[in-house]
Design a protein around this nucleic acid. Sequence first.
DNA 1: TATTATATAGAACGACCTTTCTATTTTTAC
DNA 2: GTAAAAATAGAAAGGTCGTTCTATATAATA
Lengths: 184, 184
Amino acid sequence: MSRSTKKDKLLEVAERLFYEHGFRGVGLKQIIQEADIATMTLYNHFPSKNKLVEEVLRQREERYWSYLDAHIEKDSDSTFILAVEAHCRWLKEESYKGDMFLRAIEDYAGTDNEIENIARNHKYKLLQYFQQLAQRDGKDNQQDLANQLTLLLEGTTSMTTLIGVEKATEYAIVMARTLVQQSS
Amino acid sequence: MSRSTKKDKLLEVAERLFYEHGFRGVGLKQIIQEADIATMTLYNHFPSKNKLVEEVLRQREERYWSYLDAHIEKDSDSTFILAVEAHCRWLKEESYKGDMFLRAIEDYAGTDNEIENIARNHKYKLLQYFQQLAQRDGKDNQQDLANQLTLLLEGTTSMTTLIGVEKATEYAIVMARTLVQQSS
DNA sequence: TATTATATAGAACGACCTTTCTATTTTTAC
DNA sequence: GTAAAAATAGAAAGGTCGTTCTATATAATA
């Protein structure tokens, strides 16, 4: 197996395990075993566990934005709703059990600034994305709407833990429609 | 210092540290030092760290419901809004940096069922609380409203990480008013 | 005051973690 | 085909964690 595919498999396995059991809940031993690589292969690609975590987060963030870009028609006049719907689809497919970035913030706040920043920035970018949409549409209270929709999506992720991703996303979309309608 | 005050201080320090750094992020050594007790005093009251975690969660849950009870007029015709406002005040005073119960679910899911259940049940009770309010008011879509408001509060907690508790709760109350108004 | 229960400091244990080391084998590239 | 680079298994180092043990001191109770 080539060098790059080893690295890819390592990152893929690490992302899955980190997501399912948390960063602190997964040891390198388990990652190495499930990725079927040697200890030194991991350390050949990443100088430490934390740097591996960083790369996992960066890769997941990239996948998220690719997914969103692919599912949104940018010039629609209901881009807000499309974005919420796309995000909900992402939750169903890839993030139906809590949010990896929120976990990263909680697990590494105060101990690893780089990891914390990557996770925080990702969340902040989603807010900025909505704010840009709001600015495009002009109205003042659309800034508030951007914050409200971000809050809504945060709640949706957390709510999956309680009532499952299907019902949570259903409610999210209904709520988003109400909020958008109310603010226009 | 008497037996019960030792135990109280232990629980108080444990709750604070667990909330700030996570359950996995805090060792017994740190708890013991900050509570100024001996190792065996802890083990005299709790047979293991996990049992201490359980008690911390149970106590925090009790405090939460006491707080809510004290801040809500039950027979108001806008109890939904009062409950949201009370919850937001609780966030400002006691939970402005993420949710301890969500953390417990994430940290112990799959490894400690008792802890996971305590945390899950707490969240479920809040949903049930809103559902009972909805049932009292009779209308069918009030069940949806209960789920929506629970989702809203979950999002508020998570949103504090991003924009701070003041702005997050402001948005939450505005959103709650919109949703309640829309569903009546 | 005598007795019993509880708290104390600190060492020790075993398990697990991340990281490093070693020596051998496989792959890659010229 | 040969030399350099990378991957291998597995042990070992060095640290932290939860838990237990020991032996002494303090407090509560009768």
